[in-house]
């Protein structure tokens, strides 16, 4: 089975992704033997309706190291380049550690996680006790 493609977003034009996380992820990608695509800033490409987003979305299964899955899904949509719901896994460098992101990127198994439909996070009371942060 062909492993999913890897796309890395550097979020160049804002300081919302921790610098140490994005640098560590890029460094490990560069040290690995894998081929990958890297973009400066998905937001800027979406704003420009950059045709490359279509190419990046349509090349089959993909793992994307960027930010929140909901944001990434609709950034692509805004550029008329729909990501495949069943074939895209988003790693969130705003909240995940570099280790977590890299482990997922280099894992050949794809775990699709784009939001499908209107989803609302359950409140703390609705969550099982094991999932509530203390």
């Amino acid at each position: 089975m062909t492993p999913p493609r890897i796309l890395y977003c550097n979020c160049t034009y804002a300081q919302v992704v921790p610098k140490e996380v994005k640098e560590a992820v890029l460094k490990r990608l560069c040290e690995s033997g894998v081929a990958f695509d890297a973009v400066a800033d998905l937001c800027e490409m979406s704003a420009r309706q950059d045709a490359s987003l279509k190419r990046l979305a349509e090349g089959g299964a993909v793992k994307i190291a960027a930010c929140y899955p909901r944001a990434v899904k609709w950034l692509f949509h805004a550029a008329k380049a729909a990501l495949p719901t069943e074939a895209a896994e988003i790693l969130n460098m705003r909240v995940q550690s570099a280790d977590e992101v890299c482990a997922a990127l280099f894992n050949p198994e794809l775990k699709p996680n784009l939001p499908a439909g209107k989803t609302t996070k359950p409140s703390a009371e609705e969550l099982p006790k094991s999932e509530v942060a203390v």
């Binding site: 033997g33 990958f36 990046l56």
Partner: peptide, 10 residues
């Protein structure tokens, strides 16, 4: 884009 032996790119 980094093109290498392992993996695909867009």
């Amino acid at each position: 884009t980094r093109v290498a032996g392992g993996g695909r790119v867009a």
